[in-house]
Simulated scan of single mutants.
Amino acid sequence: MGSSVMYHYAGFSYHSQLKFPSFGIVCSSEVVGVSRRQVLEQVDVVLAKGDERAALQLVKDLQGKPGGLRCFGSARQVPQRLYTLDELKLNGIEASSLLSPVDATLGSIERNLQLAAVLGGVSAWNVFGFSPQQVLYLSLGLLFLWTLDVASFNGGLSSLVLDTIAHTFSQKYHNRVIQHEAGHFLIAYLVGILPRGYTLSSLEALKKEGSLNVQAGTAFVDFEFLEEVNGGKVSATTLNKFSCIALAGVVSEYLLYGHAEGGLADINKLDMLLKGLAFTQKKADSQVRWSVLNTVLILRRHEATRAKLAEAMSSGKSVGFCIETIEDTIGNADI
């Protein structure tokens, strides 16, 4: 995190027809329960192979069926219209605290590292008797490494260092990242977008993806969205889903801590998408306000589920296990 990003892979596609084994006369809920667990295990398998289409088909085959995946795409949502800032306040939402995240933890660590570097340079100068020319060469070398990181890895190396230190020494930061990503995961599933993986630290993302250009975050089966984008037209339904997903992390933080620190990149990406779709400022504001209100109300309604999901994600559970956690925690009355 720091910022969570949606990263994409191309996979081989096929459609699999789900076939349920024949059981004798036993409790129907047990039959469906076993079948659901088997399907979710298969979802994990095909996601590991990179076959997003097959994974989505498996989920859709069980979507909305009794004892199956009742919650996928089942979120109750508010009517879409232009909401004013006053209406958001009436629902307990202070937009400025939500939509202007500043990561105080990473900022503090970065400033301390910069101070330590300066003090270290001064100490080295005094202890080792470095000449001004040697100090200049050392400074230029560090500047070159920083520029290389920005140009080649989009700041990935710096993010890796800061994020690793923050996770190691700040339990608050560590917990905030988990809750942030749980918000993305839960909202995506409830609005009908299948999560396909997640990482909770830059180091974990590096180990899984082998690239500094990929930061921590939650990834989604989003080929349908990309096909619409590439076709030059994004449907209102699709835009609504991804607007809520983009804001889910900052909303989770806001609901838990009263303000958001992470997720600025999520907001910027949503802003870029709306500009790319040629939205006027008024239309963009309307989209964002509706998405904020909708996401807040969904996450408030499913607070206990988000907490359970965060526990599963903090333990490194699979996507299928996380989905089952959501399905087991949300009651029929909440759908």
Rank of each mutant, 00 (worst) to 15 (best):
M272Q: 14
E261N: 06
I245N: 07
G258M: 10
K241L: 04
A236P: 04
S235F: 03
G276E: 09
F242W: 13
Y257L: 10
L247V: 12
M272I: 14
G232M: 01
E261V: 04
K275P: 09
S235G: 08
I245A: 12
K269M: 07
Y257M: 05
N240Y: 10
N240E: 15
A236V: 15
G258N: 01
N230K: 10
L274W: 06
A248T: 03
V229H: 08
G276I: 13
L273D: 10
C244E: 07
L273E: 03
K269C: 11
L239N: 11
F242M: 06
S252H: 03
G249C: 04
V250H: 02
I267A: 01
S252L: 02
G263P: 02
S252E: 01
M272S: 14
K275V: 05
H259A: 13
V251Q: 04
F242N: 11
A248H: 07
Y254Q: 06
G276R: 05
G232T: 02
E261C: 12
G231S: 10
L270G: 00
T237A: 15
V234M: 08
L255Q: 05
A246C: 12
L255H: 04
N268C: 02
G263E: 04
C244P: 00
G258R: 08
T238F: 09
G262C: 13
Y254P: 07
G276W: 07
T238W: 08
N230T: 10
S243V: 07
G262T: 09
V250I: 09
V250Y: 01
L256C: 13
S243Q: 05
S243E: 07
K275C: 12
G258D: 08
A246K: 06
L264T: 13
G258K: 03
G249Q: 06
N240P: 00
A236R: 15
A260V: 01
L264G: 00
V229R: 11
K269I: 05
G258A: 04
L239A: 14
I245V: 10
D266G: 05
V251Y: 08
K275D: 01
L256R: 15
L255K: 03
D266V: 10
A248K: 00
F242H: 04
V250K: 11
N268R: 07
A246F: 05
L273N: 09
L239D: 02
L247C: 12
S243D: 08
V229T: 03
Y257I: 11
K241A: 09
T237I: 15
D266C: 00
L274S: 03
Y254E: 05
V250T: 14
